[in-house]
């Protein structure tokens, strides 16, 4: 590396490469109606300091589906959505501790739940259909209560925020 030229080339290539990566890593901007805004301690953003998602963006994540019963809907319901862990990782959240805010101004501080282990989702479909606001949609944090009996606690129930609108990562 004695040649200054070579050095420049390397630097330039490296810079270019880094830039490309960071460009590729940037979240795409939402095109449809924004349904979820992720704020707080996150690395990746698309609108100002926030990461905003429309339904289509959410559907682009790997899809997770499970059936479970819960306290709010009679019988067993099938939920489809994005794993909480995947969504948070996609925005480079520093932890799984966050405040979930809902349209009805309800909020709950979620912490101490291992979302790597428990495949909780931000559901956007109930029984294969998108949910209206009056059906507790459009997004609903849902735990696989039946499959993971350890989630049968008040904390998990409280963390099952419906009409989810915003996630504030701590």
């Amino acid at each position: 590396m004695k040649s200054p030229f070579l050095r420049h080339v390397v630097v330039a290539v490296t810079f270019l490469f880094l830039t490309e990566i960071s460009l590729a890593d940037q979240l795409p901007a939402p095109t449809g109606k924004v349904v979820l805004i992720v704020t707080g301690n996150i690395d990746k953003t698309n609108v100002d300091d926030t990461a905003q998602f429309d339904i289509e963006m959410l559907e682009n994540f790997p899809v997770t589906t499970f059936k479970t019963s819960n306290d709010w809907v009679e019988g067993i319901t099938e939920f489809t959505g994005v794993r909480v862990s995947e969504l948070l990782q996609s925005v480079g959240a520093s932890s799984y501790s966050f405040r979930a805010l809902a349209l009805d101004r309800y909020h709950f501080d979620v912490s101490g739940i291992d979302f790597d282990k428990i495949p909780a989702i931000i559901a956007y479909k109930k029984n294969g259909k998108f949910m209206r606001v009056r059906e507790l949609g459009p997004l609903w944090i849902m735990f696989p209560f039946d499959e993971y009996p350890e989630t049968d606690t008040e904390q998990h129930r409280n963390a099952s925020v419906w009409q989810l609108a915003e996630i504030k990562v701590k």
Binding site: D71, W72, L103, D104, R132, V133, R134, E135, L136, Q163
Partner: peptide
């Protein structure tokens, strides 16, 4: 409209 829906949803929860 939005608040009407939200009210609707919370009423449906109350039914439980």
């Amino acid at each position: 409209q939005s608040d009407f829906d939200i009210f609707w949803a919370s009423t449906s929860i109350i039914e439980q």
